[in-house]
Amino acid sequence: MAVNHYENFPVASILLPKRLRRAVEIIYHFARQADDFADEGDLQNEERFTALDSFRNELKRIAANETPLTPLFQDLADIIARHQLPLQLFHDLLDAFSQDVLKKRYANFDELLNYCSRSANPVGRLLLHLYEEATPPNLKYSDAICTSLQLINFWQDVTKDYAIDRIYLPQDEMAHFGVTEAHVADSRVDKEWQQLMQFQVQRTRDLMRSGAPLGSILTGRIGIEMRLIIAGGNRILDKLEAVQYDMFRQRPMLRPFDWVIMLGKSAPFSF
């Protein structure tokens, strides 16, 4: 996922089989453009919804076996037919981006998980369909990995999200640890903030671990790709801990040396 929601998206990775790279790129461009409709520029909310609805209408044309109006969706129709991709997963992504336009706070973790089930999990499910590995156990593992990656992105981007009036930290958990929105507004890293973020990071790490068997189930280059994605997410969590959860001043990012560490941790897992 290259930016925002898609910082860990394996776009045209050299590890992806060549036969799948075009399909992955098309899915990425769909998600990237739709995400931009919800986030970027100075559009009014109604304009954002109109743009997202234009994507929904194109999906309806595909469902009706009609020719889409735009090149992106003509390409999308081709890969959907070629790989028998579920249309609902694309609708789920659009629903999540529409939610981003209006919903700025999350009362509890269940609300956040519900959002992740539409903003992140469809991407992993689409990839499994492309790989022809979309078994029920694999889908469950993938959901855990994708939700973890989405949460990691939230914890990285607390400052960036607050700049557009979004806080993804569950409000009930903020209150439990004595954290208020003033902590975010003031970039305040005190004991209360560190305890809250320690809790979030550990839960995210546990969730990632629950999906990690997928890295061994998938074989060949696809398996290596998945293990690198998992290692990358865990590396960001390590960096958050290392800076004592001060992502305000030291946003954790993957750098060249991190890839050496990640490669070392990407041997097939043993369970």
Rank of each mutant, 00 (worst) to 15 (best):
V3Y: 07
F9W: 13
F9M: 11
V11G: 03
P17D: 15
K18R: 14
R19E: 15
L20E: 09
R22N: 13
R22H: 14
I26D: 00
I27A: 09
A34E: 00
D35L: 08
F37R: 04
A38H: 00
Q44M: 12
N45D: 15
E46M: 11
S54I: 02
R56Y: 12
N57E: 15
E58A: 06
E58K: 02
K60S: 12
A63P: 04
A64I: 04
N65E: 15
N65T: 10
L72D: 03
Q74S: 02
Q74P: 07
L76N: 01
I79S: 01
L85V: 10
L89V: 01
L93A: 08
L93V: 13
R105Q: 08
Y106T: 04
F109E: 15
E111Q: 15
N114D: 14
N121E: 14
V123F: 07
G124T: 04
L127P: 09
P137D: 13
N138S: 12
Q150L: 09
I152M: 03
F154S: 02
W155D: 03
W155M: 07
T159P: 00
A163E: 14
I167H: 01
P170M: 04
Q171D: 10
E173V: 05
M174Q: 12
A175L: 12
H176P: 00
V179F: 03
S187T: 05
E192P: 02
Q194I: 07
L196F: 04
L196V: 07
V201P: 04
V201R: 03
Q202T: 11
R205V: 09
R205A: 15
L207I: 08
R209M: 07
R209N: 10
L214N: 06
T219N: 04
R227L: 09
R227M: 08
L228S: 02
I230L: 12
G232F: 01
G233E: 05
I236Y: 00
I236Q: 00
A242Q: 15
Q244M: 08
Y245T: 04
R251I: 06
P252D: 02
M253C: 03
R255G: 01
P256W: 12
W259N: 03
W259K: 12
V260I: 15
L263W: 09
S266Q: 05
S270G: 08
F271H: 14
